[in-house]
């Protein structure tokens, strides 16, 4: 098999790691992580605005992860935790980097790629207009905000997002998402 989850995980553990997690993504976990990271940020960052920005993006990216993890069928991998995902928060040079990873059904890749490439190509003002359009026009489900999370992250980071897909098998790939927050 070409894709190895542990290799991917160690690749994501770059820089000065503040927190790294690999396993089930649950609502309780996210609540706990947010609490831990918030107090940790209080210790390492003085500027309240930077802290706020990181925290905001972290909330958005972890909740995105929580809502969009696809479970591998038990038949394919019986050792994997249910609702499996990865996230790593680290400091690299003067930037903070949030990395998330999750399995995704291959039939969703095209749409997500188009959405991400579009968001990456937009200017600050265009992102603002898109955000307002989606906010005011798209119907939200209990699950999410019609892609508003990704737009919000791109807005707050000035387009500092990147992604990668690793093919896992015929039905699934692993989606790695990287957010860079300049300090």
């Amino acid at each position: 098999m070409s894709f190895n989850i542990d290799e991917r995980y160690s690749k994501m553990n770059q820089g000065e790691v503040l927190l790294a997690y690999k396993g089930s993504i649950t609502a309780e976990l996210i609540t706990n992580v947010l609490g831990v990271v918030e107090s940790k940020l209080d210790h390492v960052i003085d500027k309240s605005i930077t802290k706020k920005k990181i925290y905001n993006i972290l909330v958005e990216s972890l909740q995105n992860l929580y809502h969009h993890v696809d479970d591998l069928p038990y038949m394919v991998n019986e050792s994997m935790d249910i609702h499996f995902g990865i996230f790593v928060i680290s400091k690299m040079d003067e930037s903070y980097v949030i990395r998330t990873g999750n399995f995704i059904r291959n039939d969703k890749i095209k749409k997500l790629t188009e959405r991400l490439d579009k968001i990456k190509s937009l200017t600050r003002d265009e992102l603002k207009e898109l955000y307002k359009f989606v906010l005011n026009n798209q119907k939200f489900s209990d699950k999410g905000g019609g892609g508003l999370g990704l737009i919000d992250i791109a807005r707050r980071t000035g387009g500092g997002v990147d992604y990668e897909f690793d093919n896992y098998d015929n039905d699934y790939s692993f989606f790695s998402f990287t957010i860079t927050i300049d300090n």
Partner: peptide
Amino acid sequence: LEYFNTSSSKCIL
């Protein structure tokens, strides 16, 4: 508000 997520943003609207 100190923070709000995008899930709240539609509700606030």
